[in-house]
Design a protein around this nucleic acid. Structure first.
Lengths: 195, 195, 195, 195
DNA sequence: AATGAATGAGGATTCATTCAT
DNA sequence: GATGAATGAATCCTCATTCAT
């Protein structure tokens, strides 16, 4: 009857197993961008589209939507851990990296608020707590004994994250730094960790 | 086409126009509870159900989702304004009331985070800013000149709100108080404003 | 809890039985205007609002939505009948009145298409047929014997009504006249019947 | 929040992408039938159901209601164009095909009435105009110069479409032919175009 | 007799997730 | 391993209609 639709088009070709790793990375990157632009409730289809893959691929790599968010956060946390583990790590420097991630990523902020009752899945909670603890361990490891905030480390982080609002990363960065200052803490350069 | 019919079955009774005011109040209360339990994205139908009214009633009283949230926040803000306007208002006391609302209401916290890029409506933003300013005015009005936080009042509030996480109001209350302490501020009794 | 809403306002006062007839007329007028502006599917609430009465009044006068449309058409048809019954009635003149109604009223056009399967109620159909017959009788009564269209009177009317499209009454009027011309018929001045 | 879950129950089987083209065709066919039976305002869900697909499929193929109607009309118009482009095309023959479509399809008639103020979308209007012009071009292309209706071609078509009412295609066909006759035009066999 | 609130069914639309290819 | 179509539940929102006052 009608012209026969969409499906006979040429498929982009199966790039084989080699692409798998790349796809995963592309998805995480895409997720970070989409989350930043549209919040954590963005449709998964948008993430897949931006990553340039089909939705099936997303599900191959991540069992459900929480897993996607987790993967994004995982990266944030890992960078902080690396910054803290670096030989020349300084408290200021590590906080700078932490702050950069806070200012950068809506998802990362969401994490620190996740345990409130915001209708996220239970698994999500467990995972969030885990990530939170890893951040704490990393920070504590490089703070001098008896630091003013030692006993309230994650509380302070949560407070700063609360201050991190605003439309652009720049605004958010400024507010984050101001928040640390209000807590009597100086942070080093706000930037991602680069080896 | 539109049949929108009514099954001739028994309807749950129309309590008549007299119920209108009560219904609105019930909706606001229900909204507060549902927001607390499921976050600001909770379905409106859940709110209507909990208020014991049909969905239409919700839409009669509030044109859209934002209006519902606004009504909830309006109440919070008004209490703070009243606390600040009271004759015997003290900074500590007003902050106690503010803190109570922060600890109480997921929605109120959300407000202070609303300007991040979380896909909320533009109208919502304008309204949120307005409420935020009212809180600031109220607080500033009762703070002594040259108060330590004077220049960063709303930043401090945002920070405390960031600290307010946790499953129960009690937990959240504790964390809020701890957060203020970290900022060098003592708050009065954490409780709603009562005349 | 909240400020008590809407219902305590002053009611516009019950103007008593005297208003009833006026209300009915206002509703029919309002319906005609609303239909013209938004089509036959316009919400009844819009009609009641424009008539300046509550929805209950609408239902007091008309059992359902079809009855409202019927009342509007009734008026159209009656004018045509009156034009045809007038002492100095001429075929041209009556057709002019008919044409005016066609060009004026989306609802009237809809009527002539109503017997197609357009999801209208069955009662509606019966009523539509009835009105249609009244128009036919009126026209036939003033047409000279052996008129060119005598055998196809309502077919011709339907054809003209098919031609009556366009955003403004003026456009529609022009097209209606052109359509009659194409059928070899001259119509008198296109205008409502006025005594 | 968005649980959009799938009951683990058995789903009716995913016939896979191969079904896509077939589904689109089924939807267009279903739409034509549903439109004929219930008018252009028929619920989209009814169309999906009749096509035997989920509602999502409908939305995958057509962005909105207008797109569905457009797809149906597109087919009608294309047949007319093909009939007009055929080598042995005669005016009578093409009008026969046109008439068949008029008598067949409530939607097609609706098209020619679409510009009245019936609350249809603006995009819809543009598209309707476009289709209308295609019909005109097709007709004009095969009419002898100086044909009696040349200057009023689409007016005549609209008039005939106005005459096309009645419960069954047969009735509608008869009335259409009678209408053409009243305009002094003879039409060829009323039937779809078949190559 | 009028008002306008309440009810709730129905229709539109969006996505999470599965799965044929 | 990838693709992207299909599924359908859930949510939003809009009215037709009833009925307390």
């Amino acid at each position: 009857m009608t012209e026969h639709a969409t499906s006979d088009e040429r498929r982009p070709a199966n790039r084989g197993p080699r692409a798998a790793a790349g796809n995963r990375a592309a998805l995480v990157t895409a997720a970070r961008e989409v989350y930043a632009a549209h919040g954590l409730d963005a449709p998964l289809s948008a993430i897949a589209r931006r990553a340039g893959v089909g939705q099936g691929v997303l599900y191959r790599h991540f069992p459900d939507r929480d897993a996607v968010a987790a993967a994004v956060l995982e990266e944030n946390v890992r960078q902080i851990e690396q910054a803290a583990a670096a030989e020349d790590a300084t408290p200021d420097g590590v906080l700078g990296v932490l702050t950069w991630h806070l200012a950068q990523s809506a998802a990362f902020i969401g994490l620190l608020h996740a345990d409130g009752a915001s209708g996220r899945s239970t698994t999500g909670h467990a995972y969030a707590r885990d990530l939170s603890e890893r951040v704490e361990r990393a920070l504590r490891g490089c703070l001098p004994d008896g630091h003013r905030l030692a006993d309230d480390l994650m509380l302070a982080v949560a407070m700063v994250s609360g201050a991190v609002t605003g439309p652009t990363p720049e605004t958010r960065e400024h507010r984050a730094v101001a928040a640390w200052r209000l807590l009597g803490v100086t942070v080093g350069p706000v930037r991602p960790f680069a080896g």
